[in-house]
Design a protein around this nucleic acid. Structure first.
Lengths: 104, 104
DNA sequence: AAACATTTTTCACTTAAAGTGAAAAATTCG
DNA sequence: CGAATTTTTCACTTTAAGTGAAAAATGTTT
């Protein structure tokens, strides 16, 4: 599961994997914290998306950070997240940086 | 008010100045987010303490960050806060860094 | 020391963000 | 088409952050 780089996964599967409700992922999307690829209305999460979400969950659950703080850090293009971020997540982070630019 | 560097101020005055309840400052102290000087039981906030608190308030109120996030950032000794921090606050920040070390 | 004011502490309450449950509406796909 | 899946909406729960009120402790003045 989540093996080949190019695959993508439906929301229920990702939510289960992360141990959250799928509504939570919709909720995150409202803040552009994650923006899955869409074919029609249906969402598809890339492997990168999933790694990014894992990292976000760690910051929130393990460390007690809130959504807003993560968005602030993204906006500041700061090393806090990037620096201590597992390598592969960085690209994804930069992705959301761009997507966040013209939003809110 | 808050002019000479060496002066210190009682909690009510500082709370008024910051526009918060003094209980909030007690609350912050539980997390070592600010640790005023004490003579006996009475607390005295230095000018540095006050500048630091102003900065914390900005992060929380204007930006929507939460207490936990600020503590995480302090613990990580990160540039996020330090970098964009008004110059004089930096020393104070380092102060709290030390105080936080052997706590929680 | 007594009496009064100030500060600290505790308890219970309010508020707002984060997250969830359930069900209706919309969409996908065999 | 028709069943199954996905999306959306609404209202609810939970928790961190903050506050009000009052009791307890401390400080201060006479």
């Amino acid at each position: 599961m989540f093996n080949s780089e190019d695959k993508s996964y439906p929301i229920e599967l990702v939510a289960d994997f992360l141990g959250v409700n799928s509504r939570t992922l919709y909720y995150y999307e409202k803040f552009s914290l994650v923006v899955p690829f869409r074919r029609g209305r249906k969402r598809y999460y890339s492997k990168q998306d999933i790694r990014w979400l894992e990292y976000v969950r760690e910051l929130m659950y393990d460390q007690g950070m809130n959504l807003r703080s993560i968005i602030v850090l993204i906006r500041r293009r700061d090393d806090v997240i990037l620096g201590k971020c597992p390598g592969e997540v960085v690209d994804c982070f930069k992705n959301y940086l761009m997507k966040l630019k013209n939003h809110n």
